Simulated assay, not measured.
Amino acid sequence: MECSEVVSLPKEERLKALSYPDVETGEIPEYLTCELDPHPYGEHVAQLLYMEKPNGSVLWLAWGGGIGMELRCLPVCERASPTEENSCWLPVRHRGGHSWEHYE
């Protein structure tokens, strides 16, 4: 189960993300849902775009927890699942469970 917090990404933030250095081009939805486990407080995060450099990094949008909206380039967790068929794609040092726990 994922957090149900949804945010509308303003056009200015979308343009800023698309012009971020080393970002791979792609579509960014207008509405984003937090990808972490449900949590009653603190920051929320949603994946925006993959980065060409540094390798294994993703451009994330963080919001809530008193920070407003903030773009962050962070590596992914990559913690392997017990079956080693999947690895976590959430940001490194994320709160809650790993992404593969929702699917395995």
Rank of each mutant, 00 (worst) to 15 (best):
P54N: 08
R72D: 00
L18S: 08
W63T: 00
N55S: 12
E43H: 12
P91C: 05
H94L: 03
L36D: 06
P40H: 07
E30T: 15
W63L: 01
C34K: 04
P38T: 09
T33M: 12
Y31W: 07
K53C: 04
P10T: 11
R79W: 07
P40F: 09
V58S: 03
Y41R: 11
E104M: 12
R95C: 08
H102F: 14
K11V: 15
E30P: 03
S87A: 10
G64S: 10
E85R: 13
L18C: 08
L71Q: 09
C77N: 05
T33H: 03
D37R: 01
A62L: 14
L9D: 09
E30S: 12
L32T: 00
K53R: 14
H39I: 01
P10W: 09
L36M: 10
G65A: 09
E101T: 11
E104H: 07
V45Y: 06
R14H: 05
G56K: 01
N86R: 15
L36K: 01
T83V: 03
H94W: 01
E85N: 12
S8F: 13
H102T: 13
L49Q: 02
P38E: 08
E30M: 10
L49M: 06
G56Y: 06
D22W: 00
G97E: 08
P54Y: 08
L74F: 04
C3K: 01
V92K: 04
V7H: 02
W60G: 02
E27F: 14
E5N: 15
V7W: 03
S4T: 15
K16M: 14
L18V: 10
W60A: 02
W100R: 03
G64V: 07
D22F: 05
L90V: 02
C88V: 03
V76Q: 13
E30N: 14
K11H: 14
V92P: 01
M1T: 07
L15N: 15
Y31G: 02
S57G: 09
E12Y: 13
C77R: 10
G42W: 12
G26W: 04
G42L: 12
L71T: 09
E101C: 06
L32M: 13
V76F: 04
V76D: 03
R72Y: 00
G64T: 06
T83M: 05
E27W: 10
K16W: 05
N86D: 11
S99C: 07
L61I: 14
E52Q: 12
V45K: 02
S81Q: 00
V76C: 08
T83Y: 01
G26I: 04
L18R: 15
Y41E: 14
R14L: 09
S87H: 10
L32C: 05
Y41Q: 13
V92W: 00
Y103R: 15
G26E: 03
D22K: 01
A62W: 12
M1W: 04
P29R: 12
G64Y: 07
I28P: 03
V6H: 11
K16F: 08
L36G: 12
S8T: 15
C73H: 00
E104R: 05
P38N: 09
D37Q: 10
H94I: 00
K16H: 12
H39A: 05
S57E: 11
H39T: 06
V58Y: 02
L48R: 00
S8A: 13
C73K: 12
W63Y: 05
E70M: 13
L49N: 00
E43M: 11
T33P: 01
